[in-house]
Design a binder for these strands. Structure first.
Lengths: 117, 117
DNA sequence: TCATCATATACCCATATAGGAATGCGTCAA
DNA sequence: TTGACGCATTCCTATATGGGTATATGATGA
């Protein structure tokens, strides 16, 4: 039996978590301090369950922590997972610096596009 | 008519492109130099159309360039888009450094977990 | 205990998407 | 011109997932 998956098994990693714009918004909001779900959902302009589900994804990959505070549950950033993404992208730094030396290649690109029109 | 989308309209951005493990593999492979699709598909252990489709996504968000070389089409990194991700994650640097100062919060976390058992 | 508030989960729908196979299309060499 | 090669696109299927509504769960206070 062949199982075809829409995305590899590592779907639930940090890269996937921050691929969703709403989840990046949540992280941005949490920069100014911990918050309960209801407040986040209002700031996001979405339903409370919607916010809860995004928070669950963030929690499962370790990008947020939560602590109980009375009836509420306060969510806070745990950005250590973002450090991995920072480092992974940083590994390509030489390539984006290199791009400045590639004006010639860029000109070739333009020439080719012109031909393709 | 209400249109519900599975993901926001900004789906096709760099964050989404690198959320796919195979596409990160492609970028990693291209670090050692430009390649034609067929070679990439072999190195990835996947079909040529599969590789082509991933490359299309990478191309549309600007993470790869392509140039014709005879019958082949050589793909190469354009890492400038990764710089944006690098900077976005870098904006959270204070938070992952801060984590070292949060031993107290961590202890609270453990206490809470113990209570939840 | 019971009412209430805060949050999480279950369920449903529509869309996005990864994967393969088949096919189309363009390019080069003979 | 024609065959072969390299790549892109199309078509199909199964799964993943975001969003909402309804509901369950949990915690608190009276």
């Amino acid at each position: 039996m062949m199982i075809i998956m829409a995305r590899a098994a590592t779907t639930s990693d940090v890269f996937n978590a921050i691929a969703e714009p709403r989840r990046r918004e949540i992280l941005a909001l949490l920069r100014t301090g911990e918050r309960p779900v209801t407040e986040l959902s209002q700031e996001l302009g979405m339903s409370q369950p919607g916010a809860s589900k995004h928070l669950r994804v963030l929690r499962e990959v370790g990008l947020v922590r939560d602590r109980k505070a009375g009836k509420q549950r306060l969510y806070d950033i745990d950005a250590r997972g973002l450090q991995a993404v920072h480092e992974w992208t940083g590994g390509f730094e030489q390539f984006w610096n290199e791009s400045f030396d590639r004006l010639d290649a860029y000109v070739q690109e333009l020439k080719q596009e012109r031909h393709e029109e």
